[in-house]
Simulated scan of single mutants.
Amino acid sequence: MQSIPIKNVGTNRLVDKFQREYYYLRLSVTDVCNFKCTYCLPSGYQPPVQKESFLSLDEIRRIVGAFAAMGTEKVRLTGGEPTLRKDFLAIVETISALEGIKKVALTTNGYRMEKDVERWKKAGVSSINVSVDSLDPRQFYSITGENKFHQVMKGIERAFEVGYEKIKVNSVLMKNLNDQEFDRFKNWVKDKPIQMRFIELMQTGEMDQFFNRYHLSGQILAEKLLKEGWILRQKDRTDGPAKVFSHPDYLGEIGLIMPYEKNFCASCNRLRVSAKGKLHLCLFGEEGVDLRDLLVSDEQQVILQSRLYAALQGKREHHLLAQGNRGIRTNLASIGG
C-alpha cells in the first residue's frame, strides 16, 4: 500500500518538559479479551453498562497520523485482544501505510496465531509479542482460564515459518506460580530466536490481594542472570521498557520489565491511546485526555496535534507505584498494559 502523508502542521515534536522524546505509541483497539487471566481479568471481560464504540478505522488513521507527524515511528496494537477486531487487518494496513511509521507491532494472546499469522505479516505487522505465562499446559490453563497452550505454541512455530526472525514472549512473573519455571523458560529459548520477557506483576485497583500474594521483584532474576554470565544489552530508541540480557551460549534473549525499579521512567519513550480515544500519559494514574472530538475529520489535525503536545507537558517525571499509588486503573485490559 502506498505511504499516506499527513502533514506536520508546525506543532512541536512530542517532547515533554523533562526532555524525553516520544517515538512509540501503544494503541488499544479493543477492551474485549477472550482469556480470563488471573492477574488481569479473572472473571473474564465484562461489557460496560454504558456502551461506547471503539475507535473506527478512520479515527485510528487520524490519531496515528497525528502522532507520526510529530515524530512517532513505532505503533504497538494492543487490547484486550486486538485480533478480535473484524477489521484488524485493515487497521494494520492503514497504519503501516502512514508516512513516518516504521514499525507496526502486535501484542496478542496468540490464540489465532497459527491460523492468521501469515496474513498479519502480509498486512504489515513487523513484530509480535505473545503471552505465555507457563510452559506447563495445566498451569497455563490455571493462569489464563483457557486450554490453549498447544495452540499458542503452534502459533509461535508458525510465525517463524512465515518469516518472523524473532518473537517476543511475555510472561507475568508470579511468585510460587511460574517463577519456578525460570530455568525451564531459559532452556526453551536456548536454541530459539525468542526474547523471553518477564514482567513484574503490577498493582491495580481490583487486584490488591493478588498483588500482595504473588508479587516478586524482577531484580532477583536480574542478579541470577548476571551471575550466570548474561550481559545487559543497550536499548534502541524505539525499544520498550525491558532490560534485555543476552548470553553467548543462547540464541534467545531474556528481558525483564521492572516498573518498581528506581529510575524506571527516566527513559520513557511511549504514550498510550485507549480503544475509546483517550490519551494516557502513563499506564497508571490519570483519567486520560479525550481526543475523540478531534478525530471527526482530517481538517482537525492542527488542533489535534496541539492538544497532544499540550497534554504531554503535564506528564509526570515518575509514576508513583513504589509509593503504593496505582492511580485509577482497575485492570490493564482497559488500556492495553
Rank of each mutant, 00 (worst) to 15 (best):
K86A: 08
E114A: 06
E181V: 09
G324S: 04
T83Y: 06
H280W: 11
L279C: 07
W188E: 10
G285F: 12
I6Y: 13
R316M: 11
L232Y: 00
G124Y: 04
L312N: 03
F18A: 08
V49H: 15
F54G: 12
V9D: 09
A90V: 06
Q301Y: 15
S217N: 13
A242M: 06
L57P: 11
E81W: 08
M258K: 05
K262N: 07
Q180M: 14
G337E: 00
P241V: 12
V162K: 01
Q180L: 14
V296D: 05
V49R: 11
D249S: 10
E165W: 07
N178S: 13
Y111P: 01
G205Q: 14
F67H: 15
M113D: 10
L77S: 00
F182I: 13
A69I: 06
N263D: 15
S267A: 13
E206Q: 09
K168Y: 07
D179W: 08
R197H: 09
G337K: 05
Q219R: 14
F284N: 08
I231Y: 07
G80Y: 00
N34G: 02
S171I: 12
I328S: 06
V75Q: 02
I220P: 02
T107H: 05
V75M: 01
P137F: 01
D239E: 12
T330E: 12
L216V: 15
N8W: 14
Q234P: 11
I143D: 02
E223F: 00
C40A: 02
G65E: 03
G145P: 02
A123D: 10
K103H: 14
Q139P: 01
S131W: 02
Q300S: 12
L201F: 15
N325A: 08
Y309V: 11
Q219S: 15
G10A: 04
T38N: 09
L332M: 15
D236V: 08
G327A: 08
S217Y: 05
G44C: 06
S246Q: 11
Y45V: 02
G229L: 10
K190S: 01
S306L: 11
I60R: 09
F264D: 01
S28Q: 09
S274E: 01
G79S: 04
F149D: 03
N34C: 09
V130W: 04
L279H: 07
D236F: 07
I95R: 00
P47I: 10
I101H: 01
N331C: 03
M70T: 05
R326W: 15
L251T: 09
L281Q: 07
E206F: 13
K7T: 13
V172N: 01
G10S: 07
Y214A: 00
S28D: 06
